[in-house]
């Protein structure tokens, strides 16, 4: 990978971020997840965890441990930066796992969908047409963030896109399926939020008892279907 295709900068003293760009794109998200998987299988001494986002990976590490294990570098930052450069050179050799497809039932009726009419009206569509367009597509989980298990999915058809609410709701109920711009997402908890809510699911996104508490992870594919549950 050529040097000018990414930037590395410190995210505090105990973390750095590798940024592949500044836009929502499957290609940049793929690169991010490739690098994420590289460090999953090739952790270094002092690595705490890596956090993939839309088009950047952040690496958290223990400064003391990295400095002890890589004494040839002046700083832990330089050492990890070098490890990243090596990783990026070796990325192409990694096999790509097939993405998981997860199907999620959504109730688009009545109180479960307080903003569906707004989304339909602002796009000159019927509610039924919005649901059809929304459920026709398979979405990618770009990243998890904001709240535990909140998945950022995209991209929705421009024909049903809608801006965030100008005044966020104080309480969006758990399970709400929302739209913001070309993104869609599901609220795992009751939470304040500004996305346009077009439905609700009882799909369990977050199971704290599980070792992997989150049903979705970056790179998964999601398909919604209409359900009255």
């Amino acid at each position: 990978m050529r040097a000018q295709l990414y930037k590395i900068f410190p995210l505090g003293i105990d973390a750095l971020t590798i940024e592949f760009g500044n836009r929502i794109s499957a290609e940049l998200n793929d690169k991010t997840l490739d690098l994420f998987r590289y460090f999953e299988t090739n952790p270094f001494a002092g690595l705490i965890e890596t956090v993939p986002a839309y088009c950047s990976l952040s690496i958290f590490y223990e400064v003391r441990s990295v400095r002890k294990n890589y004494p040839e570098f002046l700083t832990a930052f330089e050492a990890v930066q070098e490890l990243v450069k090596t990783a990026l050179q070796n990325l192409t050799e990694l096999p790509k796992p097939a993405p998981r497809l997860i199907e999620i039932p959504v109730n688009f009726k009545g109180d479960f969908a307080p903003d569906l009419e707004f989304v339909a009206a602002s796009n000159n569509l019927t509610c039924q047409k919005v649901i059809e367009i929304f459920t026709a597509q398979t979405y990618r989980v770009f990243m998890i963030g904001f709240l535990p298990a909140f998945a950022y999915l995209g991209e929705i058809d421009a024909a049903i896109g809608a801006p965030r609410k100008s005044t966020p709701r104080l309480k969006v109920p758990r399970g709400s399926v929302g739209i913001a711009g070309r993104q869609t997402g599901i609220y795992p908890f009751d939470s304040p939020g500004g996305w346009q809510i077009i439905g609700n699911t009882d799909f369990k996104l977050f199971t704290p008892e599980n070792e992997t508490p989150c049903a979705l992870q970056a790179g998964d594919l999601v398909k919604f279907y209409a359900s009255n549950r």
Partner: peptide
Amino acid sequence: TELVSSAVNFGT
């Protein structure tokens, strides 16, 4: 400047 979301840290 518009930024897409990425990780933040304690102290950011």
